[in-house]
Design a binder for these strands. Structure first.
Lengths: 331, 331
DNA sequence: CGGTCTCATGAAACCGGTTTCAACCGTAAC
DNA sequence: GTTACGGTTGAAACCGGTTTCATGAGACCG
């Protein structure tokens, strides 16, 4: 239905002017005499003419859109990321096309498909292969988020080494002895960096290396799954460092559901400082990262016409001590 | 960089054939003699030719993409929805472009922009104005999800009236007297329908009408916010029906954090049956809706070339009784 | 051996815009 | 009165593919 779009040439015909003039009126680039302008505008209005992306994109050789590629998008983290990105893209008049590649096998093909519907692409770390990133980068501008990029691309990430401070806090300030880590290194570059920081803190504090990480995903249900592996056994850890707030909340929920006291029986920490972290009781000790700013910076790099130095931008993060680690305050 | 894409005409020139032949080889529509075919394929391979969406979309007058518009996308619900949609779209070779309109004011403009980058659009109920839906529908095919559509469009949703059964179960089978509802009717069509069912069940059971709903959003943090309004006061409800699992889990977490026992002190129910619902303790009583199927059906309607009867498809849902409502089993 | 039919191929139009280039207008300056 | 100039406008090329139509070569048949 309604597929009978009015074309530019049709408008020109009706208004009795050349196609070129209609184009000029439509985009307002070149001055056109008032009477002609009005006449054309009236025809445009009356017939509901709207320039098609088809023709425009072809002629301008740009899509006016940026791509955003994620490993998935459950949870507030990605939600916040998208919002920050869209807000910034709006400034430059670009649309945002989101691709949520749920770790499917054909993600690479899908990403390549997206690559020629957009002018630039932001790819979240751990989503697609290095190889594919290179292919996309050969075609359009690419910025990698939350991961170090290859040599060619720029990247924006948040400082993960604050996990070192957090771990030191648990080991030294609170004196916990058996720490566990929930998250899968190698799964995503972000988690890998956090695990490395966790290890490094043990070494710095001259403690023996921690146990192997509990390899689960980053969703809340993964925290619940981790709980089954961590909380029901005899040598239950006295503190658990989770790769993000979602798993931490899943773990917290499971701990409370089992009748355990947090932090007395087990301390729990997260990463992200999402809204829920402050609302929950006990409030969650975590690390705040500037998600919106991360997204906005990425979008700016993509939109910026002049070539940026293709550097790796690292945004600062901040340790937020609340009660779930054992610090005072409302229990 | 690398913007120097090889065009179809260039390939034709190098291979010493006409552009038409290259096009035929590239898409494999018309038979081409083996030797010419091989020659062209080799040139394509060597020079890394890839047909541009620009030209193809213009000539074919189709984008090969479907749009998916959401009010936001935190949480497993939307994640599942996207996966189901993408899986189905993959069958027909369409890409999926996701638009997460975080209830921003300019959503309508953004949706209209997306409208001419795709061949069809699935719009989640409560995202954009009826007016805008009509405008989009005048241009491309539209299917509305999780909401009744206007007269023109088709829609796919899940049966929300199972909330009636759930409410009856709480009132009659368990004998709870003070039920509360968490969620904002009018916020989304889905929640509106659930609230109506909640009301209807009270009327059927000849109970006096329930108190006003706790008007919060659909995220987990909203459940925590609702907790502050519900759990700290004297006339605490003895059962809470939440608009979805996320808020139910936020509420559950807050209840446990306050030292309340669930379901003894307060029963809690949700809607969706997301993975976490079964993992949590006490396990969450909820209503299972076939999210993937909902998404897949929507995608099928959009891809189907023959005009569907533009009806409203309603998928069945199922009451899942676990322990958070007071039913036996593992507490 | 001539006529017809099939199949591969190229020329050209087309999809719907943008932009360059040149022509044209009227006016100002000499 | 003529020339130069600034400002509008239209013709045409172009963006990168697809597709129709016509043509030519070769196979098949009588």
């Amino acid at each position: 239905m309604g597929n009978s779009r009015v074309t530019l040439r049709r408008v020109a015909e009706i208004a009795g002017v050349s196609p070129a003039t209609v184009s000029r009126v439509s985009r307002g680039t070149t001055p056109v005499s008032p009477e002609v302008r009005d006449r054309v505008l009236r025809v445009i209005e009356e017939h509901g003419y709207k320039p098609s992306h088809f023709g425009r994109a072809l002629a301008e050789r740009r899509h006016g859109a940026l791509g955003l590629v994620f490993p998935g998008l459950s949870g507030p983290y990605f939600s916040e990321l998208i919002q920050g990105f869209e807000a910034e893209a709006l400034e430059t008049g670009d649309s945002v096309l989101v691709l949520a590649s749920h770790s499917r096998a054909d993600t690479d093909a899908t990403v390549l498909d997206l690559a020629d519907r957009v002018d630039g692409m932001a790819i979240h770390g751990g989503t697609v292969s290095i190889d594919t990133i290179a292919k996309v980068a050969a075609q359009i501008r690419v910025v990698v988020m939350a991961s170090e990029a290859g040599p060619a691309q720029a990247s924006v990430s948040a400082a993960n080494d604050t996990v070192k401070d957090l771990t030191r806090h648990l080991l030294v300030d609170h004196g916990y002895r058996r720490l566990a880590f929930v998250g899968t290194p190698d799964g995503s570059p972000d988690v890998t960096a956090r695990w490395q920081a966790f290890l490094a803190a043990h070494k710095t504090a001259r403690r023996k290396p921690p146990a192997e990480p509990i390899r689960v995903g980053l969703q809340q249900s993964d925290g619940a799954i981790a709980a089954e592996q961590l909380l029901d056994r005899d040598d239950r850890p006295d503190a658990v460092v989770c790769a993000n707030d979602e798993t931490a909340l899943g773990l917290l929920l499971s701990a409370l559901g089992r009748g355990l006291r947090v932090p007395q029986d087990v301390a729990i920490t997260g990463f992200d400082d999402m809204p829920m972290a402050a609302l929950v009781r006990p409030a969650l000790t975590t690390i705040r990262q500037p998600i919106r700013e991360l997204a906005a910076t990425t979008a700016r790099l993509l939109a910026d016409p002049l070539d940026q130095p293709a550097g790796d931008i690292v945004l600062p993060t901040e340790l937020v001590l609340r009660s779930s680690c054992g610090c005072g305050g409302v229990p």
